[in-house]
Structure formats: C-alpha cells, structure tokens
C-alpha cells in the first residue's frame, strides 16, 4: 500500500532530508518515531500529497505520487487518504456533523449522512452530532477529526502527533480509537509521533 525507496526532500536547495526505505501492506499499522525536526511531518505530508517535488520513489495505493498533477493529487488525496493532525483543526463555523460531512463533500464523493452518524456514534459522539464544534472538549474534537479522516473509507490514514496535545486518559482513548477505526476499515495507518506514551501501542516502528 505504501512503498518508500531512496526518498529525499529538500525545502531549501542546500539541505535535504533523506528518509529510510520501508513498505507498508494494506491494513498494516506503523509508528514513525523521531526527534522533533527529524522530518516526520515532512514524510507524512509527502505521503499525503500535501508536499510535491521529492526525489526517489514514493508509492501510495500503487501510484507513484510524482506522476500526478496537482489537481489529480487533490482528487487522490480526497479518495485515498485520511488525515489526523495534532491540533484537530475543525472548521469552527460548522457543526460536528457538518465537519464530518465536509470530507465526502470536498472529495466529491457521495454524501452519506447515515454513515457519518454511525461513525460519530462508534466514536462515542452520538450525542454531539448537532453540537457546534466550539462547545466540545479537545479530546472530543480529536475524535471528530478521526471520524472525519475515515469518512471516505481511505486506504491510508496519516496521523501527525495525534496525541501530543492530550492528557494520558485521552491519549490512551484516542490511540485506541484510531487503531480500532483503522482495523475496522482495513486501512493502513501511519502515526508520526515523538510521544513516548505510544511506543508500546504499535509494534511496527520506523525510526527517522
């Protein structure tokens, strides 16, 4: 599902970040570990097509990302990738439900409101469906972000420091939900983190 080989990326011409080779199968989970500044976010953004212009090879869902135009990459991202970020970045003008529905809407796929409700309920947010996102806690917000990431049944879920801003209790809950949801969707999950609390949650680890 993901194949990285001789991948490197340069923000500025004089300094480039080189990544280790690795592959991930469909449904496989892995942890991307490394110090702050080691390139975890950069790698996730490359895998999700948010950054372009790498050297080497990066294949996601059997597609070499460099071969896609910017527009094609947008579509690819909408269909195949689900993102979860450290700060959840929900759209504050919208309700919980609408935030989740944005995912299929923006990806241009069929909007299934029932599915959205199911996903939110399975993440314990059944009562918050119509709430404004300004009225929910940070842990709940992170769960909304997870719901949003899996709405389109993505092949790959990319999570960047999903637990770093959370307390221990929410940290454990969020990583558990993330793993559950990935397993249920048979999605490949890559979690980038320097959060030591996650070390024993996922066996498969790649050190940057």
């Amino acid at each position: 599902m993901v194949a990285v080989s001789k991948l490197s990326f340069a923000y500025t011409p004089d300094r480039s970040i080189t990544f280790p080779d690795f592959t991930l199968d469909k449904g496989e989970h892995c942890l991307l570990l490394g110090e702050s500044g080691s390139g975890k976010t950069t790698l996730l953004h490359l895998m999700g097509g948010l950054l372009r212009g790498y050297t080497g090879s990066l294949q996601v869902a059997e597609t070499e990302l460099a071969s896609l135009s910017e527009g094609a990459l947008d579509k690819f991202r909408g269909k195949n990738i689900g993102f979860v970020f450290q700060k959840n970045h929900l759209i504050s003008a919208l309700s919980v439900e609408k935030n989740v529905i944005m995912s299929p809407y923006l990806a241009g796929v069929h909007i299934d409101t029932h599915h959205a409700h199911d996903v939110l309920t399975s993440l314990g947010l059944g009562e918050k469906i119509k709430s404004s996102v300004k009225e929910i806690s940070q842990g709940q917000a992170q769960r909304v972000a997870i719901a949003r990431a899996v709405m389109n049944h993505p092949d790959v879920i990319l999570a960047d420091e999903p637990t770093s801003a959370l307390d221990d209790k929410n940290c454990a809950l969020v990583i558990k939900l993330l793993l559950d949801v990935a397993t249920r969707n048979n999605a490949t999950l890559a979690v980038a983190t320097h959060d030591q609390r996650l070390k024993d949650k996922i066996k498969n680890q790649i050190i940057l």
């Binding site: 999700g48 991202r77 759209i91």
Partner: peptide, 16 residues
C-alpha cells in the same frame, strides 16, 4: 488559513 488547508487535505482543489 487552517480551515482552508484542512479543506485541501480533504481533497478540495485550489479552484474550489
């Protein structure tokens, strides 16, 4: 800015 970036991460195109 964040909203817009998030929308792009969900597959919205620049022109959208």
């Amino acid at each position: 800015r964040y909203d817009l970036a998030i929308m792009r991460s969900m597959g919205a195109s620049k022109s959208k």
